[in-house]
C-alpha cells in the first residue's frame, strides 16, 4: 500500500513541456547567529514539489520546518543553496489566521486581489466566488472578530487562494483548531486542492507544501510525507502515500502508515536525549 522512497522520484503529475516542479529546494542550509556561535537550523535540504503535488513536511520541534517555509515564501534568504518557485510568489497561510482586523472578510480577500492587480470592477465578484469556494458565502461583510476560528482559517485560505499562486505554503494552519473543526478543514482543503488540479477546472493547478508536527494530519492530507530530523533539520526519510483520496483521518490505512512514521519520528527524537 505504501512505498518508501529514499531517492527523489520524478514528478508524477508533471504536464509535458512545462517546468517539472512548482518549487525546487536545492541543497538549502540555514544558520542563524553570528559567525563562531552559529546555530545550524537547516542542513542540506533538497525537495522538489511537483506541479499539483501535495507534500507534507513533518518534524518535531526544532527541525526548522517553519524556517524552511519562510525561505520558500521569500521572507528570508538561505545561508547556502537555492530556492526556485517558477510560478511566482507563493501564497502562505499561518497557524494564526493573520487576517487584517480592520477589514471585513471580503475586503481582506479584495486587498489580496488588488495587490495582485485585479481591476476594481472584478474584485467584488471574485472575492464572493472565493468565499463561496470555502463555503462562506455570507461572510463577505463580517468582521474578522465576528467569525469563529474555523471560519477565520477558511477566509485566510480564500485570501491565500486569491493570490492565484500555483504554490500554497501552509505553516501548521490547523494546529490551533479543535479536532472536529480541523477534521472538517482537512476535507475542505483536500476538496479544494483536488478541484484545482482537476484538468477540467481550467486553473494552472495547485501544489501544496504543508508543514505540521501531526503525523496523522500529514498522512491524511499528503501524497508525499517528508520527515525532517531536528537540530539541524535534515531529511530523515520520505514516504509516498498511495491511499486514495478522499481519506479519513480514522481510516485503517492512514493509521497504519501513521504508526510507522510515528515510530521513525520517535526514533529521531530519542537520538537527542542520548547526548
Amino acid at each position: 500500500m505504501t512505498t518508501t522512497t529514499l531517492a527523489k522520484q520524478p514528478a508524477p503529475t508533471a504536464p509535458a513541456g512545462t517546468v517539472s516542479y512548482a518549487a525546487r529546494i536545492d541543497h538549502v542550509s540555514k544558520s542563524f547567529g553570528r559567525p563562531g556561535a552559529q546555530q545550524h537550523v537547516l542542513d542540506d535540504i533538497s525537495i522538489d514539489v511537483a506541479p499539483g503535488e501535495f507534500v507534507c513536511l513533518l518534524g518535531a520541534s526544532g527541525c526548522g520546518k517553519s524556517t524552511l517555509l519562510n525561505l520558500v515564501a521569500g521572507l528570508d534568504a538561505p545561508s547556502s543553496g537555492g530556492i526556485e518557485t517558477p510560478g511566482g510568489r507563493p501564497a502562505l497561510m499561518f497557524q494564526e489566521h493573520a487576517l487584517f482586523p480592520w477589514l471585513t472578510g471580503g475586503r481582506n480577500i479584495e486587498l489580496a486581489l488588488r495587490l495582485r492587480g485585479v481591476p476594481r470592477a472584478e474584485r467584488r465578484a471574485e472575492a464572493e466566488r472565493l468565499l463561496e469556494l470555502v463555503r462562506l458565502g455570507g461572510a463577505y461583510g463580517k468582521r474578522v472578530h465576528e467569525l469563529s476560528g474555523g471560519m477565520r482559517q477558511r477566509v485566510a485560505m480564500a485570501r491565500a487562494l486569491a493570490q492565484d499562486s500555483q504554490l500554497l505554503l501552509m505553516d501548521e494552519p490547523f494546529a490551533a483548531l479543535d479536532a472536529i473543526t480541523r477534521d472538517v478543514l482537512h476535507d475542505e482543503l483536500t476538496r479544494i486542492w483536488s478541484a484545482a488540479n482537476d484538468s477540467a477546472s481550467g486553473t494552472g493547478g495547485l501544489s501544496v507544501l504543508f508543514v505540521t508536527h501531526n503525523v496523522r494530519e500529514a498522512v491524511r492530507l499528503a501524497q508525499r510525507v517528508v520527515l525532517l530530523s531536528s537540530r539541524p533539520g535534515r531529511i530523515a526519510r520520505e514516504w509516498q502515500v498511495d491511499i486514495p483520496q478522499p481519506r479519513r483521518i480514522e481510516d485503517a490505512a492512514v493509521a497504519d502508515l501513521s504508526v510507522e512514521i510515528t515510530e521513525q519520528l520517535r526514533g529521531e527524537i530519542r537520538r537527542h536525549g542520548q547526548h
Binding site: A73, L75, A91, L92, E96, A98, W102, A112
Partner: peptide, 27 residues
C-alpha cells in the same frame, strides 16, 4: 509582526505596505 508578514506575502511591500497594512494597523 504577523500582519507585516501576512502583508508581505500578499504583496503589500513598499508604499502599498505602508498604506494597506502599516497605517491601518497602527490606527
Amino acid at each position: 509582526p504577523l500582519y507585516l508578514r501576512a502583508g508581505r506575502t500578499i504583496g503589500a511591500t513598499g508604499l502599498a505596505g505602508v498604506r494597506h497594512v502599516l497605517l491601518p494597523a497602527a490606527l
